[in-house]
Nucleic acid binder design. Structure first.
Lengths: 150, 150
DNA sequence: CCTGCACCGTGAAGTGTCTTCACGGTATCG
DNA sequence: CGATACCGTGAAGACACTTCACGGTGCAGG
């Protein structure tokens, strides 16, 4: 069935892309003494401080795991735990000034990577790529538990 | 710079796709009692038996790690270690009949996923996607250490 | 008020994926 | 025959995850 071949070829490209991108991120983060999981948690703090429970839900991991990740980030001086003003059970995780600097740097690195990957593409091809990926994501989301999480 | 926005938007899509696909694979494999790393190793055995050294290079991990992964797969009865006919230092990792069955099943699952993700796309859009991804991969490969590995 | 239940975060224990370093066995080349 | 490079693995350890159990807190309902 030749119709299938094109689809499997596309999936192969996507799979290789995920592998390569994953390695690239892990390597560049490791150069800064970071790990992917901790950085992902920090990244979710751009919008502002957050409860560990909320972070666990957002990342799709157990609350216990968030405790460990925050431990590591706090030890590196990137986030701080502060008491929740209204709920004494919860703790608010907040980026420190150093964490904020790092977040800005991460955003710059992301823009740079985007430029390296998609820099020479015409407007049409780029728009086409985004629209196809949106369509694929729309189909993939319901297949994955917690796919609605951003 | 609005030109940058489109590129970052594309990268966002790719990143979300990575996360979702990773979860989907991990979940469906876990349902079969497998893990991603072990299955990846098994997947590289489709072409035939292989030395652990060769597997380490192909997967981009340390030789020690391959020992552990093969241990797990052997314990599950999916691969077997056999002496290399010409080099008594090396061991050849070979899929067992059960491992072969599993490989066939994995290939079917991959084709099914490709159908679910890209099924309704027109020939043009699918070809466009593959060509854009090939171009992006071409740029990404040199950025990643070991990017030449398949 | 105060009792029961749901919730927040964390200690304990365990699995899986990875690493580096050291070592014994083997191939190979001079 | 001997130096050297290579193959796989033991030992020890880092990190990302999990479930289960427990103490502290919030929030009703009686």
């Amino acid at each position: 069935m030749p119709a299938d071949d094109g689809r499997v070829a596309a999936l192969d490209r996507v799979l290789e892309l995920t592998v390569l991108l994953g390695r690239d991120m892990a390597a560049s983060l490791a150069a800064s003494g970071l790990t992917v999981a901790r950085t992902t948690l920090l990244w979710h703090l751009r919008a502002g401080p957050s409860t560990q429970r909320a972070l666990a839900d957002a990342l799709g991991v157990s609350a216990r795991n968030v405790t460990g990740l925050v431990d590591g980030l706090a030890e590196s001086g990137l986030v701080s735990r502060e008491p929740h003003p209204a709920d004494r059970r919860a703790t608010l995780v907040t980026p420190t000034p150093r964490g904020q600097e790092l977040l800005d740097e991460l955003a710059r690195g992301q823009a740079e990577l985007a430029g390296q990957l998609f820099g020479g593409l015409s407007r049409e091809r780029l728009d086409g790529l985004v629209s196809v990926l949106d369509e694929v994501l729309e189909r993939l989301r319901p297949l994955v538990p917690g796919g609605a999480a951003s």
